[in-house]
């Protein structure tokens, strides 16, 4: 068995020691620190990114809340403005309506007054006309002039009788 050739042991041990020590130095001084740095850098980077993401998320939530608050404020203000304007308009309309109604009442009263005056006047001239007609008719019937006053009294009496 070649593994038990004792004269082959020393060169194998010597070269095992040389290569193993060289590999150990290469690993511990060069390769492993390099890999370790890269892994650490990655871990730090990932942690940073996660932190930043959390912060940004919080910020976004804040902005959203502010936006919603602004929106709600604007809506409330608009509501208030609409309410104020519509109240004012309603008040104006009421005032104008009141004034118009008052004017209409006054106009109606004035017109009624004028109508009454006109009717009184008409009534007055009617009795005078009636008296004239009565006098003229009486003159034709009796062939002599009739006193105005008598005619008037007769008309008044007749009017009273009919009324």
């Amino acid at each position: 068995m070649p593994q038990l050739h004792f004269q082959d042991f020393p060169p194998q041990l010597v070269w095992l020691a040389i290569t193993f020590v060289v590999l150990y130095l290469l690993m511990s001084k060069v390769a492993l620190p390099k890999i370790g740095q890269v892994l650490d850098a990655r871990a730090v980077r990932i942690a940073d990114d996660l932190d930043r993401a959390t912060k940004l998320k919080d910020e976004a939530a804040g902005v959203l809340a502010a936006y919603e608050k602004a929106l709600a404020d604007a809506r409330a203000q608009a509501q208030a403005t609409i309410k104020a304007v519509s109240e004012r308009m309603q008040k104006d309309a009421e005032a104008r309506e009141g004034a118009l109604a008052k004017k209409l009442v006054a106009d109606t009263e004035a017109a009624e007054g004028r109508i009454k005056a006109a009717r009184d006047q008409a009534m007055a001239s009617l009795s005078q006309v009636a008296a004239e007609i009565t006098r003229a008719a009486a003159e034709k019937l009796i062939g002599q002039p009739v006193n105005d006053a008598v005619a008037q009294a007769a008309v008044a009496a007749a009017a009273k009788e009919r009324a």
């Binding site: 060169p11 194998q12 070269w15 290569t19 193993f20 690993m27 390099k34």
Partner: peptide
């Protein structure tokens, strides 16, 4: 006896390969 043997050769190749790999 510090002869460079075929075993030594492959030890050297192995550590070179490990180093290049990493």
């Amino acid at each position: 006896d510090v002869s460079f043997t075929n075993a030594s050769l492959w030890m050297v190749i192995a550590i070179a390969a490990v180093t290049v790999f990493l």
